[in-house]
Amino acid sequence: MIELVIDQRRKDLGGFEVGRVLPFAKRRMVGPFAFFDHMGPVDMPAGLPKTVDVRPHPHIGISTLTYLFEGEITHRDSLGVQQDIRPAEVNWMTAGSGVTHSERFERARREGARLEGIQAWVALPNGQEEIDPSFQHVVPGDLPTWVEGGVKGRLVAGETMGMKAGVSTFSPLHYLHLELEPGARFQTPTDHSESAVYVVQGLVEIDDGKPLGHGQMAVLSSGAPSVIHALQPTTVMVLGGEPVGERFIEWNFVSSSRERIEQAKADWRAGRIKLPDMDDQEFIPLPPDPTPPAPPMS
């Protein structure tokens, strides 16, 4: 059954719009997934300005999971990694105690390209929030796939349905990319206590209820499986896992401690966090603190 439906909210990242789904006021996380952005679809013309790129910025306390349907992004980070990510590959960057990275649209700038994908943040569990940063690039051959009953599936990360993706995660989770033909049905995994379905494109019913379309996430009730029924050609992501506890999120920082986030903010403001080795000529400044609400009038 559906517990909650979340509609994406359009967010401008400085010349590039995304559809933000998590965090949401009524549902901050699904399992360890603390952040979920749908990039595009957008046509990027050759010669697009560099202002569209995501300049170097920091993270703590999470792994970032970038997965594309179309296009290419060039990743550079403070570990010395430079890696292009293409469709059906996984970039899994673990920030831990702190890392910086940039995301550049260099191929699109040269040739023009259509871009679409999902970036998720997966909160690290208690006791591992401050592990050393690391980076994994996982190719399609290390991601289990199957075709059955009008469903073409890929396990992007985690473990479920007797399969395990070639991504080293830190807590129990599942993350699936499904393409469904009209009329196809898929029963969601019950390996983990929290789960959700996000519609990338198309139209589905869940448990033969209200139709869900592009940009909508259905958070599922825990315990029982749900059935996704495609009403037209549809792409969905199925995500879930075990909760890791309360997390605070401010800007690009995630932690179980507000004090740790304040320290990260101070470090970035003071220039104490290393920039990417191959992209250290600019960075995104720390945004100003939110304005506190005005006191009530007497």
Rank of each mutant, 00 (worst) to 15 (best):
G153C: 08
P276A: 05
E282K: 10
V151A: 05
A184G: 09
E70I: 06
R109V: 04
G223F: 08
A266F: 02
R20T: 15
L212S: 09
P140D: 06
V197G: 08
E70S: 14
V254S: 04
R272D: 09
D191F: 11
G149H: 13
Q187L: 10
D207T: 09
A294I: 06
H192K: 05
E246K: 15
L79R: 02
T66S: 14
R20W: 13
R114F: 11
P172G: 06
S193T: 11
F35E: 00
S195M: 04
A230F: 02
G150Q: 03
K164G: 05
R260A: 15
T64Y: 04
P290D: 12
H174P: 03
I62H: 00
S222Q: 13
A108S: 12
F35I: 04
G223L: 07
A108M: 09
L180C: 07
F170C: 01
H192R: 07
L65H: 01
Q128H: 14
G150H: 01
V30R: 05
P41E: 13
F69D: 03
G162D: 11
F33K: 01
H174M: 15
P87C: 08
G117Q: 09
Y67C: 05
F69T: 08
K152Q: 10
P295E: 07
I206D: 04
T235C: 11
I85Q: 07
F35D: 00
L124H: 01
S102P: 07
E179F: 05
L220A: 12
P23Q: 14
D191C: 03
D279L: 08
A95K: 02
L203P: 03
R20D: 10
G202K: 11
R104C: 10
V204C: 10
S298K: 12
P233Y: 04
R272S: 14
H137I: 02
M39N: 07
L178F: 11
F135D: 02
A264N: 10
P125G: 12
R86H: 12
E129N: 02
A270W: 01
D277S: 06
G61D: 05
M1F: 12
F16G: 07
Q232T: 14
A34P: 04
R269P: 00
E130I: 00
R28D: 06
V156K: 06
T51W: 11
P87D: 00
F170I: 00
V200P: 04
V197D: 05
D53L: 01
P290Q: 06
P276Q: 03
V42D: 02
P58E: 00
G153A: 15
E106K: 04
Q119M: 13
V227C: 11
N126L: 14
Q263W: 06
I284H: 03
Y198C: 03
V238D: 02
V197M: 05
Q82F: 03
F24D: 10
V199P: 04
V138S: 08
Q8W: 13
L180R: 07
I6Y: 00
Q216K: 15
